[in-house]
């Protein structure tokens, strides 16, 4: 360790680079990062800078400082567009942003940002060895946004106390279905939209009931056509029986 301290305090830059590289190879990224940070300004514009900046960026990535890693890799990619590492750096930059994306139930600013970066990477290097992974990450982030919208809509269904929440659920699921056409949650979304419409219709005042029952039936049709073998099939078949029963009143009256 004392050797490290000596180099750290030393004025000369060459030993720092050398030792930093050695530490990096040993996997001691935090220490390497400290050394690199001292010499980055000295090497600016010199031929060794390319390698140094790559290693330096990677120490941030390895020490999970993803904010800085994302930025440093981005800078590397724009400063050394001819480097053989540029593709990897561009990918790691985008992946750093991916790492910052929080759980779906919190603000998704970082998720949106990561999606943009990853998409930019895929567009730039469509043949890249990383593109498979990049696509997986994009899917994962896309799913996060879907999940968020889905859970918010579902909560309206869950907390339904008055018609307001059920209407909110229907509206939100409508938006969800429109916004995420290929979502894996689509089946559930259609189901909960039907469920909300069903509850809304049955608890309606008389003069609104018929129309709402009809809407719910439409949602039922939309669901059954798309997912005839759904796991929800039993539940919705029960719903439709109840609704048909309720609708009978109106057909006999009119």
């Amino acid at each position: 360790c004392s050797e490290y301290q000596k180099v750290l305090k030393n004025e000369e830059i060459a030993p720092k680079f050398k030792m930093g590289e050695a530490l990096y190879n040993e996997g001691k990224y935090a220490k390497a990062n400290k050394l690199f940070a001292q010499i980055v300004p000295n090497y600016r514009g010199k031929p060794q800078a390319e390698k140094l900046m790559y290693l330096y960026s990677n120490t941030f990535y390895k020490t999970k400082d993803y904010y800085v890693a994302g930025y440093q890799f981005e800078r590397f990619a724009s400063s050394y567009p001819k480097s053989e590492k540029v593709e990897e750096a561009a990918f790691l930059s985008a992946k750093s942003y991916y790492m910052l994306s929080p759980v779906y139930s919190k603000d998704q600013k970082e998720t949106v940002e990561a999606l943009e970066k990853l998409q930019a990477f895929i567009n730039l290097y469509p043949e890249s060895q990383y593109s498979t992974e990049a696509n997986t990450l994009v899917q994962e982030l896309d799913y996060k946004l879907e999940k968020k919208a889905f859970e918010i809509a579902k909560q309206y269904n869950k907390i339904a106390y008055t018609s307001t929440e059920l209407e909110a659920a229907i509206k939100s699921f409508d938006n969800f279905i429109f916004d995420f056409p290929g979502s894996s949650l689509r089946e559930d979304a259609l189901f909960y939209r039907l469920d909300s419409a069903y509850k809304l219709a049955l608890n309606s005042v008389e003069y609104k009931k018929q129309n709402r029952l009809k809407t719910a039936k439409e949602y039922y049709q939309a669901f059954i056509e798309k997912y005839p073998n759904s796991k929800h099939i039993e539940t919705i078949n029960n719903m439709v029986l109840v609704m048909d029963e309720a609708l009978k009143n109106y057909s006999t009256k009119s």
């Binding site: 929080p102 759980v103 139930s105 919190k106 603000d107 859970e151 918010i152 909560q155 907390i159």
Partner: peptide, 11 residues
């Protein structure tokens, strides 16, 4: 909402 979950706020 960097800390608070959606469901706490939306409700």
């Amino acid at each position: 909402n960097d800390k608070t979950n959606d469901h706490v706020i939306y409700r």
